[in-house]
Simulated scan of single mutants.
Amino acid sequence: MAPQDHQVSIRLSTELLERVEAYRKELERVTRQPVTRANALRSLVDAGLELVEKEKK
């Protein structure tokens, strides 16, 4: 973890966590590399923010 990174705890429903896990497994399949749940969540948050910010413009 880089010095400027912050740890954040969140609660997710079982359904949402299952969706994240499915996305994580798909990333592993596509990249042929291990993907952590944390990395999958960061990827999803980043993609979601980019989409929202793009819609604002």
Rank of each mutant, 00 (worst) to 15 (best):
M1D: 08
M1A: 15
A2L: 14
P3D: 03
P3E: 06
Q4Y: 11
D5M: 09
D5K: 05
H6Y: 11
Q7W: 15
V8W: 04
S9I: 06
S9L: 10
I10G: 00
R11Q: 10
R11D: 13
L12G: 04
S13K: 06
S13E: 10
S13D: 12
S13Q: 10
T14E: 12
E15R: 14
E15T: 13
E15M: 14
E15S: 13
E18Q: 14
E18N: 15
V20F: 02
V20E: 00
V20M: 01
A22I: 13
A22N: 15
Y23P: 04
Y23A: 14
Y23M: 13
K25G: 08
E26P: 00
E26V: 11
L27D: 09
L27I: 11
E28P: 10
E28Y: 01
R29F: 12
V30D: 06
T31E: 06
R32K: 11
Q33K: 15
P34V: 13
P34L: 10
V35F: 03
V35P: 01
T36M: 03
T36C: 03
R37H: 03
A38H: 02
A38L: 01
N39K: 07
N39F: 04
L41E: 01
R42W: 00
R42S: 01
S43K: 09
V45I: 14
V45W: 00
D46K: 14
D46Q: 13
A47I: 08
A47L: 12
A47D: 09
G48A: 07
L49S: 03
L49M: 06
L49K: 03
E50G: 01
L51I: 10
L51W: 09
L51C: 12
V52T: 04
V52F: 08
E53I: 06
E53R: 09
E53V: 09
E53Y: 07
K54T: 10
K54N: 06
E55W: 07
K56G: 05
K56P: 01
K57D: 14
K57V: 15
